[in-house]
Write a protein that binds this DNA or RNA. Structure first.
Length: 575
RNA sequence: GCCGACUUAGCUCAGUUGGUAGAGCAGUUGACUUGUAAUCAGCAGGUCGCCGGUUCGAGUCCGGCAGUCGGCUCCA
C-alpha cells in the first residue's frame, strides 16, 4: 500500500509528464495538469502536433525521471516574482492561471529536476513514489474549456502506486472495449449506419429490431399498468408551433432546417412536448382529469455537431421514451414519487441495482416564479427521500425552465450512465398558456413535468448491449434457442422438436448445416445463444435434447417439455 | 464545430524505397455424416472512401471533401 492517495500520485505524474515534455519541446507552454477519475492529463501548447510516437518518447523520458527519484521541492514567491518568472519564460497560460489566484493567497511552485510548475500541490515526496505510469492518448482541448480560446494539446495518461494496479486498470479497459456496443452491434448484426443515409441515423437490422420491438412492447405494457396513456404525434410541425415553444429562438441551430410546404415552413421535431401540449389544448381541461400521464415513443431529430456523434449513445435521430405529467400543484409530490418508484422498478428488471439521483437546482438565468421553483425542488427532494435514496445536489445545474432529478445507474462492470431524467417545466405551460378549471371555477396554470426513463431507445439499447456484453436475457433474445442436429439423420427429429417448442411460444431455430458439432457450437456461442440444444442419435431416439445453458453450462439430456418449462421460467424471471 | 488520427474484399487485417493488390474468416460449389469452441478441397469476391493534383507510373506522395475513431466544446 502506498502512503499516497492515487490522486496525489496521478497529479505528480502529470508534473513528471510536463517535465518530460519540457525536455523534448523546450519551447512548450504549459497550462494545467490535474488528476482525473481514471488518470491525469496535462495541456500544452507546442511548436508542432504530437504524434503517437511522441507518447512513447515522452513516456520513456518520464520513466527516466521517475527512476531518478527526484524530489518535489516546494517554494513560495510573491505575485510580482511569480509573474516575472513566468513572463521570462513566456508562459502565457500560466500567467492567466496566476491571475486567477486571489490576492493574499499563497503562491506556491514545485520544482522537479529542471521543471518548475505553478501549483498548489500536494505531491509525492519524490518521483520514485509514482509506481506505474502509462500515457494513453492525445487530444485537442480548448484553453479553459472555452470554444473561443485557442486549442491546446492534451496528453492523457494514468498512474498507479504499483504495476499490478495499473495492469488491473488496463484489463478493465480491455473488458470495456470488448463490450463496446459498436463492435458488438456489428458482430451480432444488430444495427448499422450508412454514409448514404447520414451520420447519426440508425439502421436497425432484424435482430436489433427484434430486441427493440420486444423492449418497446414491454415499455408500453408497463406504462399502461402504471397509469399512463399512450400518444402518437407527427414528426413534423409548422413553424408557428416552434415559435410558440421557443425552440426557434433558442434551439434553431440544433434543428434540421425547415421544409417549405404550401407556403408554410415545417420543421422536423427535436422534441415531442409541443405536440402533446396541443393535445392538452384540444379542449378545456378540468382539475378532475388531472393528473394526466401521457407517454409516447416519439422519434425526434436533432442536428448534433458532427464531432459528438458516438455509436448509438449520441445520434441525430432517436426515439425518446417520453412522457409528460400535467397536474395540479397539490399532486406534484406524489407524481414525482411515483415516477421515481416506477423508474427504479424498471431499472431493477434489467439488472441495474445501483442507482444514484442527482438533484439540479435553479441556474442564474431561469424562468418561472421563485416560489414555484422552491415548491418543485421541495417535491423532488421529498420524493428522493421517500424512495430511500441519497442524492447529490448539482447547485445551479437545472435547465432554465425548471429543476430536475437525473438518475445515474451503474452497469455490470461498474460504469455509471446518466439515464432517467425528471424535469419540471415552468416555461412551456406559460408559453402555450396551458390552463385547467379548478374547483373554484377559475383558470389555473398546471405543473408540467417531462420525464424520460431511458432517455432514448437508441442510447438505452447501446447501454444494454454493453451491460450484458451482447448476451441478452432470454426474454429479449431474438433467437432463444438453437437446435444442433449432429448429423442429417437427426434433422427430422430436430424439426419436430423445434415446432413443439415454437408452439409454446419460444423462438427456436435449427442449425441444419453440414458441419461438425464443434463448428455449430462455436457459432452458437458467438451469437450468444441462451440455449444450445444438441440432438444426436441417442436424443432423437428417446425424444430428448442435450441442453447447454449460457448461464448454467451443460445440463444433460432433458425432455422437450422440461426444456420449454425451464425456458418459460427464465423468461418470466427476466433472466 | 474545433484539434489529432484513421479509411484496402461482407468482417478482421497485411501490403517494402511509388512499378498496377494479398491472407484468414464469412459466402459459394463439391466431398465428408461428424457428440459440445473451427472437416477438407475448388470457386468467386476490390474504381484501395470520394474528387483533384504531382509523376512515365499512385493503395503508397500532395490538396480538398466525406465518414469513422480519440478528445474538447455542446447535450435549450
Amino acid at each position: 500500500m502506498s502512503k499516497y492517495d492515487v490522486e496525489t500520485i496521478r497529479h505528480s505524474a502529470a508534473h513528471v509528464m510536463a517535465a518530460a515534455v519540457k525536455q523534448l519541446f523546450p519551447n512548450a507552454r504549459f497550462d494545467i495538469g490535474p488528476a482525473t477519475e481514471n488518470g491525469f492529463y496535462y495541456d500544452f501548447e507546442l511548436d508542432r502536433s504530437l504524434a503517437p510516437e511522441d507518447l512513447k518518447s515522452i513516456e520513456k523520458a518520464m520513466k527516466k525521471l521517475i527512476g531518478r527519484k527526484l524530489p518535489f521541492e516546494r517554494f513560495e514567491l510573491s505575485r510580482a516574482e511569480a509573474e516575472q518568472m513566468l513572463r521570462a519564460d513566456n508562459q502565457v497560460y500560466k500567467l492567466e492561471r496566476l491571475a486567477d489566484i486571489p490576492d493574499g493567497s499563497v503562491i506556491s511552485f514545485y520544482r522537479t529536476g529542471d521543471f518548475v510548475d505553478l501549483c498548489r500541490g500536494p505531491h509525492v515526496d519524490n518521483t520514485g513514489a509514482i509506481g506505474a505510469v502509462k500515457l494513453q492518448s492525445i487530444a485537442g482541448s480548448y484553453f479553459r474549456g472555452d470554444e473561443s480560446n485557442p486549442m491546446l494539446q492534451r496528453i492523457y495518461g494514468t498512474a498507479f502506486a504499483s504495476e499490478e494496479e495499473l495492469q488491473a486498470h488496463l484489463t478493465l479497459l480491455e473488458e470495456a472495449a470488448k463490450r463496446d456496443h459498436r463492435k458488438l452491434g456489428k458482430e451480432l448484426d444488430l444495427f448499422s449506419f450508412s454514409e448514404n443515409v447520414g451520420p447519426g441515423l440508425v439502421l436497425w437490422h432484424p435482430k436489433g429490431a427484434f430486441i427493440r420491438n420486444t423492449f418497446e412492447t414491454y415499455w408500453r405494457d408497463r406504462h399502461y399498468q402504471n397509469g399512463y396513456e399512450l400518444l402518437y404525434t407527427p414528426h413534423i410541425g409548422r413553424s408557428v408551433l416552434w415559435e410558440t415553444s421557443g425552440h426557434l429562438d433558442f434551439y434553431k441551430e440544433s434543428m434540421y432546417s425547415a421544409m417549405e410546404i404550401d407556403n408554410s415552413d415545417y420543421y422536423v421535431k427535436p422534441m415531442n412536448c409541443p405536440f402533446q401540449i396541443e393535445i392538452y389544448q384540444s379542449r378545456l381541461r378540468s382539475y378532475r382529469e388531472l393528473p394526466l400521464r401521457w407517454a409516447e415513443l416519439g422519434t425526434v431529430y436533432r442536428y448534433e455537431k458532427s464531432g459528438v456523434l458516438h455509436g448509438l449513445l449520441r445520434v441525430r435521430g432517436f426515439t425518446q421514451d417520453d412522457a409528460h405529467i400535467i397536474c395540479t400543484p397539490d399532486q406534484i409530490e406524489d407524481e414525482i414519487v411515483e415516477v421515481l418508484r416506477f423508474s427504479m422498478s424498471i431499472w431493477k428488471e434489467f439488472g441495474f441495482t445501483e442507482i444514484k439521483p442527482y438533484l439540479a437546482t435553479r441556474p442564474a438565468k431561469a424562468v418561472g416564479e421563485p416560489e414555484r421553483w422552491e415548491k418543485a425542488l421541495a417535491a423532488l427532494e421529498k420524493a428522493v427521500k421517500k424512495a430511500g435514496l441519497d442524492c447529490a445536489v448539482d447547485e445551479g445545474g437545472g435547465a432554465f425552465y425548471g429543476p430536475k432529478i437525473d438518475l445515474k445507474v451503474r452497469d455490470a462492470i461498474g460504469r455509471e450512465w446518466q439515464t432517467t431524467t425528471i424535469q419540471f417545466d415552468f416555461n412551456l405551460p406559460e408559453r402555450f398558456d396551458m390552463t385547467y378549471i379548478g374547483e373554484d371555477g377559475k383558470k389555473h396554470r398546471p405543473y408540467m413535468v417531462h420525464r424520460a426513463l431511458f432517455g432514448s431507445i437508441e442510447r438505452f439499447f447501446g447501454i444494454l448491449v454493453e451491460h450484458y456484453a451482447g448476451a441478452f436475457p432470454l426474454w429479449l433474445a431474438p433467437e432463444q434457442a438453437r437446435i444442433l442436429p449432429i448429423t442429417e439423420n437427426q434433422y427430422q427429429a430436430a424439426l419436430a422438436m423445434r415446432d413443439e417448442l415454437r408452439r409454446k411460444g419460444l423462438r427456436v431455430e435449427i442449425d441444419g448445416r453440414q458441419a461438425g458439432l464443434g463448428a455449430k457450437i462455436k457459432d452458437a456461442r458467438h451469437d450468444r445463444l441462451n440455449y444450445i440444444l444438441v440432438v444426436g442419435e441417442r436424443e432423437a431416439a428417446d425424444g430428448t435434447l442435450a441442453v447447454r445453458c449460457r448461464r448454467d453450462g451443460e445440463l444433460g439430456a432433458m425432455s422437450v417439455e422440461a426444456v420449454a418449462e425451464r425456458m418459460l421460467r427464465d423468461i418470466a424471471d427476466k433472466k
